[in-house]
Write a protein that binds this DNA or RNA. Structure first.
Length: 498
RNA sequence: GCGUCGGUAGCAAAGCUUGGUUACGCGAUGGACUGCAAAUCCAUUUUACGGGGGUUCAAAUCUCUCCCGGCGCUCCA
């Protein structure tokens, strides 16, 4: 099947092609670690995790590079306020980032280069740009001269060079920068006293914001690569600046074959921002919701469309995720019941119109449709629709009174199906152990277990005696503790649901 | 102002490139199952596609126009 991806530059879905057969070079702009990671980061890196996973599922050998902008004005300001080194600020926020991403099942990239480790590459790139007269040295740093390559202006955003000049002309003088033209941007900023700095031919200083990505992609991938991603806000000016720098430096065009940008997280219809007071860090969201619930909520929209975030969105995600995990749990239980015996190998499903054969045929078809959805520009919403349909089929079959061998074989097949699509492709499944045992690392569960166990024994006795009012009273008591009981064929099961 | 993306049922959100069948989920209601629940399944809510023209046998989908909204044009995922 052909993979179609939306390319920002061409503004449409195109057939995905790679520079080198079977290999994908993917660069995604990472965070500036000046504060704990927020929901916008969650959305971005979950989106590209999906892309990463699906490319690998399709058999590509993917090299995924994601940078850290570990020195910048905001980091320096915070370090100064707190009286610590800027590296400490960067370090602690990078740790926060990784722990949030790991919790959400975001697979690690292959490389996480940092600005502070890429200084040499940046300097040599700036030197070439100066040599080719695409850059000049100003009072306070080195600047890229946009007018030196006007044909590259607005490639991603359609901005018109004349209009931008007219619209922002007044700002040039006021900034006090050594720019000749307001459209120009810094490649190297000379250090003010006390700022972190590195030696360069133009004086001690640090890199401008955009140049790092050009230097890093050149270092890891060479002059061209397959996918460049990031949040949609990075299109202008960041990604357009990268095109200027890289293409003018190497003389090779295009730098990137597929530009991919994820949509924003809004809150109550407005952009999430600190100044509006509607700001959510990932840690905030994970106070009341499991990481996979957040992941599920994010995948419930297409990656390019905006998400309007709310408590309700997480509540919906929670229900959908519970439905998925329950189905996985049930299938695992059926199969796990005999795992110590010989694994029953399911015969190749024969398509039919009745019973097991029919359901197996349905699942096979749903799997194909799920893959088609992912091939269509990573349509996770559509894929989830297929997974929901599969859950229904699995659930029906597991409750249909199948006989032992068929039941076990079907459970095994269902586990494999879910692991392939919901697990491997979408990253929505917990480990088998977790799914079977429930959340063992929830401290509240451990705390409640003795009390709940006691009440359940009492309730079982009351039910045995058909004393329904007493049994219901105990259930109410459990509910007051935030515990919901389900009576199943294998006895009562309880969950924390408040 | 310029650029760009969007407006789909009570909520939420796919489908639009390649025009003709159901999205899916939540909520609500009814039913099956249950001592009652929960979970699960079945059904209804469903004459859904911002307004108005055009093309067509046929339009959510193509086209024109108008209205409304997000985002970008300064740092941002």
């Amino acid at each position: 099947m052909v993979l179609r991806v939306h390319d920002t530059r061409r503004r449409k879905k195109v057939d995905f092609t790679t520079i080198e057969p079977g290999k994908v070079r993917m660069y995604v702009c990472g965070i500036t670690p000046y504060s704990p990671s927020h929901l916008g980061h969650a959305r971005c890196y979950v989106s590209f995790d999906i892309i990463h996973r699906w490319l690998e599922a399709k058999g590509y050998d993917v090299t995924y590079v994601q940078n850290f902008t570990d020195v910048d004005d905001k980091i320096i300001n915070i370090a100064n306020e707190e009286g610590i080194d800027f590296t400490e600020v960067a370090e602690r926020n990078i740790e926060d980032y990784f722990s949030a991403m790991d919790a959400m099942n975001v697979l690690r990239a292959d490389h996480y280069p940092r600005v502070t480790e890429t200084i040499d590459g940046i300097i040599s790139m700036v030197e070439i740009l100066l040599e080719k007269e695409h850059a000049y040295v100003g009072d306070d740093g080195v600047y890229f001269h946009v007018e030196s390559a006007p044909e590259k202006y607005g490639l991603l955003t359609g901005q018109n060079i004349e209009a931008v000049r007219a619209g922002a002309g007044g700002r040039v003088g006021g900034t006090g920068s050594g720019k000749r033209d307001h459209k120009d941007f810094a490649l190297w900023k000379l250090a003010k006293p006390g700022e972190p700095q590195w030696e360069s031919p133009w004086g001690a200083g640090r890199p401008g914001w955009h140049i790092e990505c050009s230097a890093m992609s050149l270092q890891f991938f060479g002059e061209q690569f397959d996918i460049h991603g990031g949040g949609e806000d990075l299109q202008f000016p960041h990604h357009e600046a990268e095109i200027f720098q890289s293409e003018c430096c190497t003389g090779t065009s295009p730098l990137v074959h597929h530009w991919m940008h994820n949509g924003f997280v809004n809150v109550d219809g407005e952009k999430m921002s600190k100044s509006l007071g509607n700001f959510w860090t990932i840690t905030d969201a994970l106070q009341n919701f499991e990481p996979l619930v957040l992941r599920h909520a994010l995948l419930n929209a297409h990656y390019r469309n905006p998400i309007d975030f709310s408590e309700q969105l997480l509540e919906d995600g929670k229900r959908s995720q519970a439905r998925l995990e329950d189905a996985y749990h049930d299938a695992l239980t059926v199969w796990d019941g005999v795992k110590h015996n010989q694994i029953v190998k399911l015969p190749r499903p024969e398509l039919g119109t009745e019973g097991l054969a029919h359901t197996l045929g349905m699942l096979e078809k749903l799997g194909e449709e799920c893959a088609m959805a992912m091939d269509d520009d990573f349509n996770t919403r559509e894929a989830l629709a297929k997974i929901n349909a599969a859950i229904r089929e699995i659930s029906k079959m597991l409750n249909s009174g199948l006989q032992d061998d068929d039941r076990v074989a079907f459970g095994y097949y269902a586990v494999e199906w879910l692991e392939e699509f919901a697990g491997k492709a979408l990253g929505l499944l917990p480990t088998r152990e977790k799914a079977l045992m429930g959340p063992p690392d929830d401290p509240r569960r451990t705390e409640l277990a003795p009390k709940v166990g006691e009440l359940l024994i009492k309730r079982a006795a009351a039910r045995e005696a058909k004393d329904w009012p007493a049994a219901d009273a105990i259930r109410d008591e459990l509910a007051a503790l935030g515990v919901t009981v389900q009576d199943t064929a294998d006895g009562p099961v309880w969950k924390i649901t408040d």
